[in-house]
Amino acid sequence: MKRFKVFFNIEKEEQWLEEQLQKGYRCTSISGLGIYTFEQTDKQYVIRLDYQDYLSKQKFAEYKGIYEDFGWTHIRGSRLSGIQRWQKEDNGQNEIFSDRQSRASYYKRLMNYSLWLGMICLAYSFMLYSDSPLYHEGLWSMEGSLFWKALLFETPFVLLKLLPALMAIVLGSSCYKAYQKYSMLKNL
């Protein structure tokens, strides 16, 4: 089974993956373009997502080594920075974090990541929108059906142009959610 999905929020992705696994699937691969491949299985699997900043080759090998010793299989994740996806057979020990401190620092990493990516999107949006207006200027002087046709034609491009701003909003809200969880764990 193949599914195409795009996520801007790591916890939503984890949730969705867990739902697929609960239906009796296991994930076999995730491509960079957002194609998730599953196969049917009699066994019950669990999937957990971790976030790590840049890791050197050596550190990445150590990171993977420890998880693999615990029975996790690395599905996808780049050592340069990003989301690490881990899957394993359900055996009762299904969490990747076993104490409050490590769960709090996971949310802190997530918070910083969304913050930076969000800022980049925001800066990029400003550059994009200050250079040129969203719609072609000549559009507003057109009349009748020509105006509507031109508007219809341009709108998809405008939506595309708005994408970085939308991403900045989504990332901003992920950052805030991660911050809430982080401060809750921190102040318990």
């Binding site: 971790d50 150590e62 990171y63 420890i66 998880y67 010793d69 615990f70 996790w72 881990w86 020990q93 969490e95 990747i96 974090f97 076993s98 104490d99 490590s102 620092s105 996971y106």
Partner: peptide, 13 residues
């Protein structure tokens, strides 16, 4: 009573 998970152990080390 204390069974460490992979991510917790990696981070602590």
């Amino acid at each position: 009573t204390v069974i460490l998970a992979a991510g917790t152990l990696y981070g602590a080390i």
